[in-house]
Amino acid sequence: MQRRRKGNLQRLAGLLEIPADIVLDLPRITMLGNKQLLVENHKGIIEYTGALVRIKLSQGELNVAGAELTIGNFQAEQLLVEGTVTEIKYET
C-alpha cells in the first residue's frame, strides 16, 4: 500500500517537475572531492568517531568512513562532515 502511494507520488513529482527530494523526504548528499560531505534533510547522528560517522535518515542510515572526520556544521537542516572520506555506504 505504502509502496504504491510512493510510486504515485514519484510519478506526480516527475509530472510537475518538482525535485524528488522534497516530495519524497529524501536526503540530498553533496560531496566536494573527498574533503567535505554535506547531507541535507537528515534525522540526526547515530554514532560518531574519528573514523566513522553514522547518519540517520528518514529511511535507513548513511555510513561515512574515513580518517580524521569532524562535523563542521550541525543543524536541523544540514550536516557537514569534514576530513578525508574513503567510503560511503547506504543502508536501508
Binding site: G44, I45, I46, E47, Y48, T49, G50, L69, T70, I71, G72, N73, F74, Q75, A76
Partner: peptide, 26 residues
C-alpha cells in the same frame, strides 16, 4: 551522540565537532 541529537531537536546549532580520546568537543 545522544546529546548531539538532543541539541538538534532543540535547535541548538553546533559546529566544529570532533573526537579526541573518547571525548567529543563541539
Amino acid at each position: 551522540e545522544r546529546f548531539i541529537n538532543l541539541c538538534l531537536a532543540r535547535g541548538i546549532f553546533l559546529w566544529g565537532i570532533n573526537k579526541h580520546n573518547d571525548d567529543v568537543y563541539a
